[in-house]
Each structure stands twice: as C-alpha cells, then as structure tokens.
Amino acid sequence: MELYDVNEFWKFDLRVGLIKKAERLKRTKKLIKLEVDFGSEQRTIITGLADQYSPEDLEGKKLIFVLNLKPKKLSGIESQGMLIVAESEDGKVYLLPVPDEVPIGTKVW
C-alpha cells in the first residue's frame, strides 16, 4: 500500500448530498445518472452501480460525494463528481448512508 501525506487528503472536497433523482442510462449495463442536491447547488453525477443497485435504491438517500474532480463525460453526459462507496474484496459494493440529522452540503473529513 502506498502512503501519502495527510495534506493530499485535504485537497479533496467531500460533501453530503441528497439524491433527488436517479435513472439508469440506456444502452449501458452499469451507469446510473444521479441528480444530487448539495444545498447551495445541484449536480449531475454518473455512477457505475446499476449492476448492484437500482435507481430506486438510490433515490432519497444522503450519501458522500467528491465534488472537486475534473468533470468527465460518461455515455455522453458530464459527471460533476463521484459517489463514495465501500467495496469488499469480492466486488460487493456498499452504500455509506449519512444520518438524517446531517445537513446536505456538510463537509466530510
């Protein structure tokens, strides 16, 4: 495992977001388009979880996202961040829900 200085970690802007809408992207097996509310702004984020979660599993959930990544086009749609999940050695992905009392837009560290 490569080790990093803690200052590398502080470069990432992790925030709590509420998934307002989720829809599977046609012509793809894994991609889901998320519309995420961060309080002061809404963003479109594409995630590759459709092989393990349905859009209905994601809607209404408060989760953690990285916001200061360069936008990336996936299936022709610009993704403006990345969802943080846990993944076991066998490839099972776990959502990391945020308690209801944590306001959307809250910084994570």
Rank of each mutant, 00 (worst) to 15 (best):
A86V: 00
K26Y: 01
P97E: 05
M82W: 06
E78I: 08
L74T: 08
G48M: 06
P103D: 01
W109F: 15
T28E: 08
N7I: 09
L67P: 03
S88N: 14
Q80T: 04
L31K: 10
L63T: 08
K107S: 14
Y4I: 14
E59S: 09
E87R: 10
Q42N: 15
K73L: 14
T106W: 05
E78M: 11
N68D: 00
V66Y: 09
L18Y: 12
G48T: 08
L96R: 10
D100Y: 06
G48W: 05
D51Y: 07
G48K: 01
Q80N: 14
E59W: 00
G17T: 04
S75M: 08
V93W: 01
K29D: 15
V98R: 08
T44C: 06
V6A: 14
V108N: 05
K62I: 00
D5P: 05
N68Q: 01
Q52F: 01
W109M: 15
K73A: 13
L74M: 12
N7M: 11
I64Q: 07
E101L: 12
D13P: 06
P97Y: 00
I64G: 04
M1L: 14
E87G: 10
K20E: 15
K73G: 02
L25D: 10
V108D: 02
R43P: 02
Y94D: 10
D90E: 14
E2F: 12
I77E: 11
Y53G: 05
E8Y: 12
V36D: 11
D57E: 09
L83Q: 01
V108H: 06
K21L: 12
V98P: 10
L74C: 01
E89H: 10
F12H: 09
K72Y: 00
E41V: 04
K62V: 00
L96E: 01
G105K: 07
E101C: 06
L18G: 10
P97A: 09
Q52G: 07
P103V: 05
Y94V: 00
I64K: 14
L83C: 08
Q80G: 06
E35R: 12
D57L: 10
I104W: 02
L95R: 11
D90T: 11
E87F: 07
N68T: 03
L83D: 06
L58D: 07
I19H: 01
